[in-house]
């Protein structure tokens, strides 16, 4: 491992100031640094100017406004876990945030960093995809909003342009009759990276599934929705038996890494995608039924 290369660090206090610094050549935002510092030391990324966002307080919020739950990019995992709003309205995200790293990592790491790092197994990516989230992106030139699915461009790659910052993640406030659940499989119980993770979200109309979104992590170059599974369920009567059937379809739908030294074999990930999908959907259904 190497030392952190020589970089200049900027400490803006406002978003406007931060966006200005982002125009410098080789500028890279620094949030909690729990991914970035390691990448810099391993030579996995380069930066000449680090724009430290920790003092940009206007990016640190969780609020409900205009029928949407809005989360600032600089919100720490610990705050997601502590938020009553997230726990009661978007439990799937609360569960996932609670399984990110350790207490220290959750205190330091941000949801914005988790998404922008764009690891295929990022734990908050799948719940946000399942919640139908959009990403708000700002630059000195203005603001654009895109579906989160379009944000990921590949392993550790995003569709951000130079000079842009992710500022907000937002999703429609889940209505009554909805439920979500998160499932994660790691190599140990505490502080573990996902070998695979799955988030499921369903809305019920009686016993019909009126809306459904499922997403899987660490089983493709980016976190992805499995729309084939969604289509099998949407508008249909849903129960445990149906869930069992559609979940087994995951085996052929996911595309896990085939690298020789991957953290888990392709076969194991395919098989686990079925198990975790069934467990996530079953719990989501249970919660939707209870959410009157």
């Amino acid at each position: 491992m190497n030392l952190i290369p020589d970089v200049e660090v900027h400490r803006p206090k406002s978003l406007e100031e931060a966006l200005k610094h982002m125009e410098a050549p080789g500028a890279k935002p620094l949030a909690g640094g729990t991914d970035l510092i390691i990448d810099l030391r391993e030579g996995a990324c380069e930066a000449r100017n680090l724009v430290d966002l920790t003092k940009v307080k206007e990016l640190d919020y969780i609020r409900e406004f205009g029928g949407r739950i809005r989360i600032g990019a600089m919100t720490h995992h610990t705050d997601l876990v502590a938020s009553d709003l997230i726990r009661t309205k978007a439990q799937v995200l609360s569960e996932a945030a609670n399984l990110v790293g350790s207490i220290q990592i959750r205190n330091l790491g941000t949801v914005g960093g988790n998404i922008c790092n764009a690891s295929p197994g990022a734990d908050t990516a799948t719940p946000l995809l399942a919640l139908g989230a959009e990403a708000t992106i700002s630059s000195s030139g203005g603001v654009r909003v895109i579906p989160l699915g379009e944000f990921f461009a590949g392993p550790k790659r995003t569709s951000l342009n130079p000079g842009e910052l992710l500022t907000e993640l937002s999703f429609p406030t889940p209505p009554a009759g909805s439920g979500g659940a998160f499932q994660k499989l790691g190599r140990r119980k505490g502080c573990t990276l996902s070998l695979i993770n799955i988030a499921a979200y369903v809305e019920l109309d009686g016993d019909t599934c009126s809306e459904v979104r499922v997403a899987v992590g660490a089983c493709a170059p980016t976190p992805v929705r499995i729309t084939d599974v969604e289509e099998m369920l949407k508008g249909k009567k849903i129960d445990e038996a149906v869930i069992g059937e559609v979940s087994s379809a995951c085996y052929g739908l996911v595309q896990p890494s085939q690298r020789a030294h991957s953290r888990a074999s392709e076969e194991y990930r395919r098989e686990m995608s079925c198990v975790l999908m069934r467990r996530a959907l079953t719990t989501a259904l249970e919660r939707a039924r209870g959410n009157k």
């Binding site: 491992m1 350790s102 190599r187 140990r188 119980k189 505490g190 502080c191 573990t192 990276l193 020789a260 030294h261 953290r263």
Partner: peptide, 20 residues
Amino acid sequence: DAGEVINPNLTDYVIPSSMD
């Protein structure tokens, strides 16, 4: 792999956590 340690860090050399 061919004499090279391929998990030379605590990310991939996994040891039990307190929760284990």
